[in-house]
Write a protein that binds this DNA or RNA. Sequence first.
DNA 1: TTCAATATTATGTGCATACATAATCACAGA
DNA 2: TCTGTGATTATGTATGCACATAATATTGAA
Lengths: 234, 234
Amino acid sequence: MTRAVKRTTHQGIREAIRARIISGEWKLGERIPGEVALAEEYGCSRTTVNRALQTLAQEGMVERKRKGGTRVRPLPTSQAQFRIPIMREQVESRGHRYSHRIESREVRVPPMAIRKQLELPDNDPAAYVESLHLADGKPFAFEKRWVNLGSVPAFSDADLSHESANEWLVRHVPFSRGEVRLSASAANAKQARLLGTDKGAPLFTMHRLTWFEERTITAIELSFAPGYEITFGV
Amino acid sequence: MTRAVKRTTHQGIREAIRARIISGEWKLGERIPGEVALAEEYGCSRTTVNRALQTLAQEGMVERKRKGGTRVRPLPTSQAQFRIPIMREQVESRGHRYSHRIESREVRVPPMAIRKQLELPDNDPAAYVESLHLADGKPFAFEKRWVNLGSVPAFSDADLSHESANEWLVRHVPFSRGEVRLSASAANAKQARLLGTDKGAPLFTMHRLTWFEERTITAIELSFAPGYEITFGV
DNA sequence: TTCAATATTATGTGCATACATAATCACAGA
DNA sequence: TCTGTGATTATGTATGCACATAATATTGAA
């Protein structure tokens, strides 16, 4: 898999500079040559070097300050990007057939912790949906979801027979930001039964909370069947 | 906190377009106007619109194809960025004192799975280190690490009394890329004992494999004490 | 009708240029 | 010595332009 990037493209220069940083040519925290110098060295315009360096800064590999110049980040904060998994995409990309099943659906006052997360006035009810995501008919993930009806009143009448709650919400309330928490938890009786495992089995769990503008939309707890992993490159 | 971004900067246009997507003006999967049209609408050059759209594409908000145009992502695959946690940073940023303890250290032939990951010739030994990361003296994470001595022979003589294996490696072998796997696993007897929990307790686990150029460097398994979470915004 | 060559189109990229802005430095004046 | 004002420097950003490239549409020949 040879990388055939030309030397004077912003990508090529970005990788060249990255390599020089990795090779240790410039030490951690050290200032690297200015844009003009690099442009001259690589025989390209400053614009191109600028773009390369900006990208590296975005990735967290270097820090830039006006006048201060560009320097290698003190600690290699290698940050990773990964996509929030979408159930259907995830299942289908592995060549399985996706389906989902609503286990229960009701409107009631959520427990304290959820009220707080959703910033819900006391005694205000919210929609609660429990559902199971399946791959080729086999349980894949169990989802507990609370939807803030103050923000999304239409959810009460949503038809969830053909699309999941997530898909419905995505189509009706584009969300602007969210918060994700990843953890491990022990399966309770219900989770064990639905996911076909034993009580106490370690489950990979994802909590998600999403907002649209300044309003909370939905709080989700997803427990994945044993063996599930998130993988990504750095 | 008013946003005082001018309307003809690439940032301003990026946010304007983002707002229009979020507001639902263009539906999911729908094609949005071309660069030329947008440039005309906003009274700026195509270059500027191009940059705004490229950023949005990088963020995963839109998909772009040559000739195909730019369209809103069918499902908002909001990608998240998170930093690979550095133990010391993580512990200290929470106001605790970081320390670590080597539990065992030896050189031996690793099990099959590790040999395969490290692309190690059969019967080649590797360095094996078990260590415990502590926050204020309390166990925080248990680390099992294999180091490819073919790539990093100097590791044999590394002094790990003052810095962790990871810190030593980072200073001596800047790594270029890595792969991360997140999962949940049940604590075995040793993990339970060292992390002060029960056998079978669900542990948040991170596997990491790093390369420098085309050589594998180290394979790590980190098991976090119960209650550990990774959190990040989207 | 079918398939391959060609034209069209929207985005991708590099460059020269001009000006903006932030940080720093040197020097003059109090 | 202290201070502020302007010069210098390095990065930030917008623009017009030319050309590259990929995907699609069209055309023409077999």
